[in-house]
Structure formats: C-alpha cells, structure tokens
C-alpha cells in the first residue's frame, strides 16, 4: 500500500541545513494499522506529512497504492490527496462551517453532485456517531466530538489511506480510548489502511499491528507491536518499554510478588 524509499528531508536555516529525515525506507501493507512512534523532535510528524506532501521531501520516492506521490505535479497531487484522508492533533475544523458543512467540504472539492453529498455525509456522520450534531458549529463540540468530525471529514471521500498526526494527543484518556476504538472499527469495516504517529504507548498497544520506531530522523526498528514490547532493540523502544517495566516491577514489590509470600 505504502512504499517509502530513501526518503530524506532537511530544514533550511541560516545556520545551515538541519536533517530531519535520513534515508527512510518503509513498507506498509494494505489493511494494516501501522504506528510510527518516537520522542518529540524525532521527525515522525515530518515523515507522515511527507506522505501527502504537506511537506516536500528533498529526495527519495513515496508510492501509495501504486501511484508515485513524489512524482506528481500540483494538479495530480490534489487529486491524489482526495484519496488520502488526514486527521490532526488540533483537529483543524473550520469554525465558519457546521459539522455537516465541514464533512461535506472534501466532497464539494472533489466535485460530487449535491444529492450524493447529502447522502454520503449522513452516512459518515452516523458512522462517527454525530448524527444529532449535523447543524452544530465546531466551537460547540467537545474535543472528542471535534476529532470525530475530523475523522468523518477524512473518511467521507472513501480514501485508500488514513493518516493520523497525533490524533489523540490532545484528548483525555477516556476520549482517546473511544477514538481509538472508532479507528479500529473503521479499519475493520472499510478495510482501510491507517498510518498513525504517536508518542503514546497506549495508542501503539491498543490499535496498531505493526510499527516503526523513529529516532533522530532515522527508522531504527520495525516489526510487529508484540516484538516492540517483548524484544525492544532500539534505544527509543527500550526507553519506552523501560517505563512500563519500571512500574510493573514497582507494583510487584509493593504487592509482594516475587518475594515468595
């Protein structure tokens, strides 16, 4: 589904180029929920934003569903983006538009006829359980509801791929859980490939099948999520897993497990 080859990207500053992504290779299977995890500043956000070219990579190729995204001219890129949904940490809904209008926007951009838009928006708003909020403005919604609108907007034009840029990082744990459940459900129902970046272990553990660990702009580890937790190899993975181990050990000491009592 997604094939990234030798991707590099650096930010130009007056003091010289700062490399953010270095020689990234990554394959993501169709129907997978793929997590990219890393600490702040590791380059994960830049990486996911390269997939729909909100950031322009310096070199390398990105292929999505057989189409080489990095070769597309502006107009073709816009067409390709119609089939790549994206959700954001800060939701980025349009305050001037109602829930219905926000969700309808991608379909209008794609030039669908009005009756189809009407029917499709209904469907998708129901899927994210906001059927009663169609005429509400985003400012009147809670964080979780806003992200549901974000998801509806990303899904309404039946994308082949969904990109999630820290979609749950601004939400409380309870809401995070419900959003993750929704993503899982969508993945199952629509057979949609999801790529998400996160710094939360919970997210990785809860929804992802496979993962990649990014560290200083390089992919340092890939494989199943199980492997990440059982046999962490990279420094970042070890540090993440160490946090869990620390508390597990502490609990064991407090509860007396291992002391033979």
């Amino acid at each position: 589904m997604v094939n990234i080859q030798s991707l590099t990207k650096s930010y130009k500053t007056p003091k010289g180029d700062i490399p953010v992504l270095q020689d990234i290779h990554l394959q993501i299977e169709k129907g997978d929920i793929f997590g990219i995890i890393g600490f702040s500043g590791a380059g994960k956000s830049t990486l996911i934003r390269c997939l729909n070219r909100l950031e322009e990579p310096d070199s390398g190729t990105i292929e999505i569903g057989g189409r080489v995204i990095t070769d597309l001219a502006e107009k073709e890129l816009r067409q390709a983006r119609q089939k790549i949904g994206m959700i954001f940490q800060q939701f980025h809904l349009l305050d001037a538009k109602t829930v219905y209008q926000n969700v309808a926007f991608p379909l209008e951009v794609a030039g669908h006829p009005r009756p189809y838009i009407h029917q499709r928006v209904r469907e998708i708003v129901d899927l994210v359980q906001l059927g009663d909020k169609e005429n509400t403005y985003p400012s009147q919604l809670s964080g979780g509801q806003k992200q549901r609108v974000g998801i509806a907007r990303a899904l309404v034009n039946s994308p082949d791929l969904l990109l999630s840029d820290e979609a749950t990082s601004a939400l409380d744990p309870q809401t995070t859980y419900s959003i993750l459940e929704l993503l899982k459900e969508i993945n199952r129902q629509l057979k949609l490939t999801i790529v998400l970046i996160t710094h939360e272990l919970d997210v990785l553990q809860h929804v992802c099948n496979n993962m990649a660990v990014i560290e200083n702009g390089r992919i340092v580890e890939t494989g199943s999520v199980e492997k990440f937790f059982l046999h962490p190899e990279s420094d970042t993975a070890k540090r993440f897993v160490h946090i869990i181990d620390y508390y597990r050990d502490k609990r064991h000491v407090m509860e007396g497990v291992g002391a033979g009592i």
């Binding site: 816009r78 067409q79 954001f88 980025h92 926007f105 951009v109 907007r153 990303a154």
Partner: peptide, 19 residues
C-alpha cells in the same frame, strides 16, 4: 492548520482562499 486541512483534502488555492 485550517489551510493545511483543506490542502489535505485536495482543495486548490482558489478554493482555500474563498471557502
């Protein structure tokens, strides 16, 4: 971010300006 969200659904610059 709002303009990026619009870009991410494939909107053209003109659409983004007016919508």
């Amino acid at each position: 971010g709002k303009m990026e969200a619009a870009k991410s659904v494939g909107a053209s610059p003109i659409t983004i300006i007016f919508r």
